[in-house]
Design a protein around this nucleic acid. Structure first.
Lengths: 102, 102, 102, 102
DNA sequence: CCGTAATTAACAAAAC
DNA sequence: GTTTTGTTAATTACGG
């Protein structure tokens, strides 16, 4: 929201076309904000749908006999940079050695 | 590949014995796995696109003079309201059931 | 051990010859790391104890004739109420600040 | 509330003789439930405190120059080792029992 | 025991 | 840059 004009109590922001002079910048801003919020909420919903789809694929995959954890790991590894992976592994080895966890 | 011989009863992972030439069960399973992984990676990509869209909307909103932090808080509150309504309904259902008011 | 000091090309963290009295920087770092790990493991253990306590209370409650699912839902609702109140307050503060009502 | 006629043999549900007609079994049950809920909420709070402590230790550890990700991995590995050991021991016990080596 | 639901850890992103 | 904060993955616990 415009930081100064702040929140109206009702939040309805209905623009009355028959009373054009009552439309303050406040209600305009409220309407704008509402529009932004609705766009975002719509996108969040879509994103959630995709997340659910992913879950379904994993379920299907599991039903076919594959291991979901291993598959997730695989996908993560594919995304991970190779050099990064090596570095992380080296660090872990270093720590293990220092603790005698060979 | 499937950990075991596809311990499910549906037998989807079973290689086709009528096509013994060249395609082993291993390669079939590998192909299946690859297909699953590609589906998932595609979905992850789509999801990331939406995340980027959301980011853009926040940027636009900010450019219009709104406060992103406050807007995020608002959206979170609206989500909490929804969740709370759902919980209340669930609890009410529990009570109704326990009173035989199915 | 600390990331930087171990990053030598050989990775061995060779003992300091000017401090011949047995304790190398490596063993010091290892001791430190071990101490941190033990503190964390101790805390994790304590936390698990509490989780078990909670489980016991639910069992007792169930034995008294209460419904655990409904009770869990209730507790969740109470937590959501608290969280929501906190969020509303945070939002209000944001508004107040933006209006210079510090 | 207790699903059925509630508190039976323990005597806790006995009406207060000084307010015999106003205290119903319902209010007694409500009080009991409230007590259970408060106990649980208290425990949850304690558990959260410990979780926060753990976070602090990680912060301190990081400040000393250690890598938190590697350390977390290490701790996880140690727990797995322990679990494995426990399992192995349980198996050994089983074998001993089956051989009458109690 | 199996699937679901809650908690915890890991990772990614954004504010200061 | 760094240090939270928010999101996603994985573990753990619970009820059916």
């Amino acid at each position: 929201m415009p930081r100064r004009s702040a929140a109206t109590s009702d939040g309805k922001a209905r623009p009355n076309i028959e009373e054009p002079e009552t439309e303050t910048s406040q209600t305009v801003a409220a309407g704008q904000l509402r529009a932004f919020i609705e766009r975002i909420e719509r996108l969040i919903e879509e994103r959630q749908t995709i997340t659910d789809d992913i879950k379904e694929v994993y379920a299907e995959l599991k039903g076919t006999g594959f291991d979901t954890v291993a598959t997730r790991t695989l996908i993560r590894l594919r995304r991970m940079d190779q050099a990064e992976r090596a570095e992380r592994e080296a660090l872990l080895d270093l720590y293990k050695n220092s603790l005698g966890m060979v």
